[in-house]
Design a protein around this nucleic acid. Structure first.
Lengths: 115, 115
DNA sequence: AATTCTCTTCGTATATTTGCGAATAATTTT
DNA sequence: AAAATTATTCGCAAATATACGAAGAGAATT
């Protein structure tokens, strides 16, 4: 009962998942915060970002489900940090994706390397 | 009456726009097709992809609005191709974004270069 | 035990996304 | 001029995303 028509490759779906996580500016802003320090508490982010507390929780969940961040819950505080392993995977997927399109101009300069 | 609280930077918004364009697997698949050839007709894509014609048009519009592709309309046919200029911008934004987070492991190896 | 602090979940409202078929537009072919 | 070809737009339905305040959970403090 599986294949009526070709669906999408794992790679295509994985790119979409990571891209979807970055598809809202507040989530990019959240990650920017986590780039500038090893970890960050929910409350500290809430002060910096123009969304309500509950909304922030939702966005953090999206990022966590996509695998880009991980949370350490020690009530009443929650500490978040980047998931470096998946970040590396995401970086490679995006780099190779764009390299595919731009290889004629970029690969010659040795800026990026795929496979 | 402008700033009650900081909104998002242009960069954060631009990343979100590009990411949103890649946030659906069929759009990644569309771009994959355009990577493998200089241009492609709507009809040729419709044969390869598991979506209806009208749905394909919508996704193409999303990609076009984000600036990742451009269309050349010669009715009854429409030819699409990658927008290389914006592709380069997108590539740079994503590379620098991930580099920010991974710089301790990647920048030392000279894989990526920002600024 | 009650209060406080922090964060998540729930409930709700609104907007956007995704999908398809039918109808439309624009050209080429018959 | 009629028919065929190709792609977009329209109209609709269903699902998902976004946002907030209120309510709830979990631990520390009073």
């Amino acid at each position: 009962m599986s294949s009526e028509k070709k669906k999408y490759t794992e790679r295509q779906q994985q790119i979409a998942v990571f891209a979807n996580a970055l598809a809202h500016p507040v989530r990019v802003a959240i990650l920017d915060l986590l780039h500038s320090q090893p970890c960050c508490y929910h409350g500290d982010m809430a002060e910096e970002l123009p969304v309500a507390n509950s909304t922030l929780s939702q966005h953090l969940k999206v990022l966590k489900d996509a695998g880009l961040i991980q949370g350490e819950i020690n009530p009443p505080k929650t500490k978040y940090c980047i998931n470096r392993q998946n970040y590396t995977i995401a970086y490679t997927l995006f780099a190779c994706f764009f390299e595919d399109a731009l290889e004629t101009t970029l690969s010659q300069e040795g800026i990026i390397q795929c496979e």
